[in-house]
Simulated scan of single mutants.
Amino acid sequence: MKKGMAYEDELINGDKDLLALLKGADPADLGVLVDFLTDSGKGRLAMASDVRKALEHAKRQNKYSHDELLLLIRELQHFGGNSVANLVRRTGVPYAEIVRDVLKYVGGKIDNESVEMLELKILEKLVAKAWEKMSERERAEFARNFHAAHGPLDLGLAAVLAAVRAGGLNAAKAALMAVGSVATLLAEGAFSVGASAVAGRAAGLALGPIGALVAGAAGVQMLAKEAYRVTVPCVAQIAYIRQKQAANAAAP
């Protein structure tokens, strides 16, 4: 039994906390993660076809076994961390490293904080970027979804971000909005500065100085974009799962 547990721990880089979180998630919320990982079933170059089929099967059944959750976590880890490097090496990294990498990518500051707090920082950045692109009417409609015990919050961005920072139900609502906006933000190059810095670092790790030169900036950016199309929305969705569970636990 110990040998089996040790192997499992190695398989998912010790991410037992993430495994426990996903075990308590609604199957529909896990299905969103599967869509991000598999490109809605179309498959990705960095994913084996048998893995895609297994995850798609679990989604169709609306039920995830222990082994299927391990598979889901492992595949996320393969896209994570220094994303270009792991697309090439396929080694995978712990979820906490993925979160730190995504936070840096979206322009956030990494402090010595818990994974949950770093996730909230990512949500703040995603919401703020999406807010920039909203009309005044869209901003008002979005802000009205945030409520405090004493009534509606101020409709400004600062109040919305403060609500996100507090965690719980408001953060879960923000996470849903963030998940829905990621594809557009990435397509429009909202984080291009962060993408260049992270891609350059990762290319050196994955390909070496000569390989990075041969691949060229366009090739590196393409690999980075593929990876972040997975890791950014997955982290936002996991943040949603975490905050949703926290809100449910706090409900009377």
Rank of each mutant, 00 (worst) to 15 (best):
Ala166Ile: 00
Leu76His: 04
Gly200Gln: 13
Ala46Ile: 00
Lys104Trp: 07
Thr38Asn: 11
Gly200Thr: 11
Val179Gln: 06
Met1Ser: 13
Ile210Cys: 00
Leu120Pro: 06
Asn248His: 12
Arg137Leu: 10
Lys3Thr: 09
Thr184Pro: 02
Lys42Met: 10
Leu11Phe: 15
Gly204Gln: 13
Leu169Met: 09
Asp26Tyr: 04
Asn62Arg: 15
Gly208Gln: 11
Gly219Val: 01
Gly216His: 10
Arg242Leu: 12
Ala247His: 11
Leu69Val: 03
Leu37Trp: 05
Ala148Cys: 00
Ala236Arg: 09
Leu72Cys: 08
Val88Gln: 11
Ala195Asp: 14
Ala250Ser: 14
Leu69Phe: 03
Ala46Pro: 02
Leu120Val: 05
Gln61Val: 01
Arg90Met: 09
Leu22Cys: 04
Ala174Leu: 03
Arg242Pro: 05
Leu11Tyr: 15
Ala171Ile: 01
Ala162Asp: 13
Arg90Cys: 01
Glu136Thr: 02
Leu76Thr: 03
Arg100Asn: 13
Gly156Cys: 08
Ala247Trp: 08
Gln243Ile: 00
Ser83Val: 09
Asn62Ile: 00
Asn170Val: 00
Lys16Trp: 10
Ile98Asn: 12
Ala143Val: 05
Ala190Trp: 04
Lys63Cys: 04
Leu169His: 11
Ile98Val: 14
Ala178Thr: 03
Phe146Leu: 13
Ser83Gln: 12
His150Asp: 15
Lys173Ala: 01
Val193Ala: 15
Ala250Gly: 05
Leu21Arg: 13
Phe142Ala: 12
Ala175Arg: 08
Arg229Phe: 01
